[in-house]
Design a protein around this nucleic acid. Structure first.
Lengths: 159, 159
DNA sequence: GCTTGATATGTTATGCTGTAACAGAGTACA
DNA sequence: TGTACTCTGTTACAGCATAACATATCAAGC
């Protein structure tokens, strides 16, 4: 049981399902979900929270993969590039995508107290942004929207 | 002449004006714009671009201030906390606020080619976000919106 | 005056995050 | 068989950030 969004659930199912989607997507697009990349994705799916690259690396090492930073960074870069994993700029960390397969603009809600991260829809916000950017002549390719605050559980504790 | 937004201008005036606003704001709020903090703000205003903490530190050292990282980080933290400077998460860098004194949700347009950073209005996007966050029970305190893409000049060059 | 507390500056030392550059293994294909 | 490409692994290093401690300044209260 780990938090996703801010609700608890058993995510045994979503791990299997996300891996399935990733494999299908990769074979469709002719890209390779190699053992190292797949294992990296599994690690993030199992923990189901934002993890630093070095933390991921420890798990990779324990699984018999390389133990040097580039091993983790390359796998993470691949997963981010293809949308299976998101990078949380605010935390210099990575988290498995909560909506694999769907084309979406992600937005993250980061609790400053417990560091839990939830993924929320950002389509309206991202659209609003693209319009004003276009007015300035800027061509948007990627948008990162990250909100910091208190998650429901921590709001309650604080009160 | 340095780029602000994506247009060139002489910003001698805006340096003086921003410092003025900062001093007024600080004395109104009973907080101290000490020499080190003021100098840090000046450095960012003069360069008028996103700068890393260590780059700022070099300038501070040249001005006779401390030469160790905490000196720069403390001043930058102060300036960020009070809204005179923004932190660009994507670049691990800092930039002087383009609209000092105005209460605003900032949004940054970062050119992936020339690294120029422009500040755009993010009010609509931030508002849209707060609403969907509230639906999930999350209390937003701070929002970072950063778009990566190509600035007008680099779009033209690429074409 | 003198103490106390709050604030700010400076240092040393260290830890976390990320990448450049090179070597080798595996595969696809002409 | 050789060549090109991709992936994995390494060493070495660069860049970003903070903890912990020492010192200085200044205002409030005894």
């Amino acid at each position: 049981m780990s938090p996703i969004g801010f609700e608890k659930h058993d995510h045994t199912h979503c791990i299997a399902s996300a891996l399935q989607v990733a494999e299908t997507t990769c074979s469709e697009q002719g890209i390779q979900l190699t053992p190292a990349r797949r294992r990296t994705f599994e690690i993030l799916l199992q923990e189901h929270r934002a993890m630093g690259a070095y933390e991921v690396l420890e798990h990779l090492r324990a699984s018999g993969h390389g133990s040097q930073p580039p091993v983790a960074y390359r796998a993470l870069d691949f997963l981010v590039k293809h949308g299976f994993v998101h990078r949380i700029e605010r935390l210099n960390a990575f988290i498995a995508c909560a909506h694999p397969g769907e084309r979406h603009a992600p937005c993250f809600l980061i609790c400053r107290n417990c560091e839990t991260v939830a993924e929320a829809p950002a389509r309206p916000a991202a659209d609003a942004l693209s319009v004003s950017a276009a007015d300035m002549g800027f061509k948007v390719e990627r948008v990162a929207i990250e909100a910091e605050g208190l998650c429901p559980a921590c709001v309650e504790t604080a009160a």
